[in-house]
Computed example of a mutant assay.
Amino acid sequence: MAEATDGPLLTTPLHALHVELGAKMVPFAGYDMPVQYPTGVLTEHNWTRAEAGLFDVSHMGQCFLIPADGQFETAAAALEKLVPADILSLKPGQQRYSQFTDEAGGILDDLMVTRLGLEGHQHWIYLVVNAACKDADYAHLKAHLPAGVTLKIADELALIAVQGPTAVAAVASLAPDIANLKFMTSTDLKLGDIWAHVSRTGYTGEDGVEISVKNADVVALTRLLLADPRVKPIGLGARDSLRLEAGLCLYGHDIDTTTSPVEGGLTWSIQKRRRAEGGFPGAARVQKELAEGTSRLRVGIQPDGRQPAREGTPVKALDGTAIGTITSGGFGPTVNGPVAMGYVNRRFAEPGTPVILEVRGKDLPAKIVTMPFAPHRYFRG
């Protein structure tokens, strides 16, 4: 998961705690981040699937859109000019996944959009964007928001995720009301003595929450959560294998400016009204692809045997014709074997289709499969 970076590395407010806990630190998206702790990636992955893993995601970008007229619709209409999701229909506390698209229909970044539920703030929109894209995202927002909508960058906030079957119970020991939250909804409350914004969401396929909290409070809250025997710290290595098994895209790998939301299999994130009306960058391409299909699609790929196929691995038809490329791949501890995703020619995208992966100059058999590789366990009430 380490990525090259220019200049000195930034740190999150939890950096000293990661070091104290024995984390192996690596550069990621310009930050010095924990890739694993002493027990290792495999143990961390399996713990998250069985109990509760705590992730530092404070490198992500957090910001708010605030309409000067106090009307949620003003901010929602402004954001709808930049993303294909239906923002106007969001109820207080409701959350949606979407993408910033460009004029060619490519994806500039993917993000989470929440209409705040807190009394007096229900006209605010809260965004969480990817760490590597956040500066570009903020500039994009500033350049396109109308005069009546202000962008407030929330550098004073940290973000942690607690994921796994016992995650919500562990957090609910500090605030019982959290147990009633449904997937993709949020609330604002106190965890112990610490004020937090809690969303029932995450990027592991497991039930769990993401917690936005002030930088000054995040170490105390993290220590409080880690004092629960069900909760252990988890690094970027297991975060990546968990999201891959869950069939979830990693920006810059599985989706980017060369892929459209339709090619990426993200049409579920474009609600009916927006499909019909358009009004977002690249809408003409997206609407055409929705009507006519695309030349390629993101698919799940399961290699035979034990050899993982990494990003960049060529995918071929049985006759040797090049038909696509792996964009994410590795070992899936939950399925006890290699898993991958990537793009293939639409004619080969049907689950069960046999394909060949060219791994280190050798042809290895594989097949197209339905994602996720590990079942999603979100709590929908």
Results as ranks from 00 to 15, higher is better:
88 L>A: 15
103 E>C: 01
322 A>V: 01
40 G>E: 09
363 D>N: 15
164 G>Q: 06
110 D>K: 11
227 A>Y: 02
381 G>N: 11
181 L>P: 11
352 G>T: 10
24 K>C: 05
115 R>F: 12
224 L>W: 00
361 G>F: 06
210 E>W: 14
322 A>H: 11
265 G>P: 04
358 E>D: 13
361 G>C: 05
59 H>C: 02
347 R>T: 12
75 A>W: 12
255 I>Y: 01
238 A>P: 14
222 T>P: 02
351 P>H: 04
272 K>F: 06
230 R>F: 00
141 L>P: 11
121 H>T: 03
90 L>H: 13
12 T>F: 07
148 G>F: 04
286 V>H: 10
246 A>W: 08
110 D>V: 11
14 L>Q: 09
85 A>S: 14
144 H>E: 02
15 H>L: 12
310 R>P: 00
270 I>L: 10
327 T>S: 15
127 L>P: 07
354 P>Q: 08
164 G>Y: 10
63 C>R: 01
258 T>C: 00
162 V>W: 08
106 G>R: 08
237 G>D: 07
228 D>C: 03
73 E>L: 14
287 Q>F: 09
84 P>I: 12
135 D>V: 12
115 R>K: 13
290 L>C: 08
43 T>V: 13
305 G>A: 07
199 S>G: 07
81 K>M: 12
308 P>Y: 15
216 A>I: 03
359 V>N: 03
104 A>H: 13
231 V>N: 02
16 A>S: 15
100 F>G: 04
162 V>K: 05
301 I>F: 07
62 Q>C: 01
172 A>Y: 04
308 P>H: 13
236 L>Y: 05
309 A>E: 05
61 G>F: 04
155 D>G: 15
109 D>N: 14
327 T>G: 07
223 R>T: 03
59 H>F: 01
144 H>G: 00
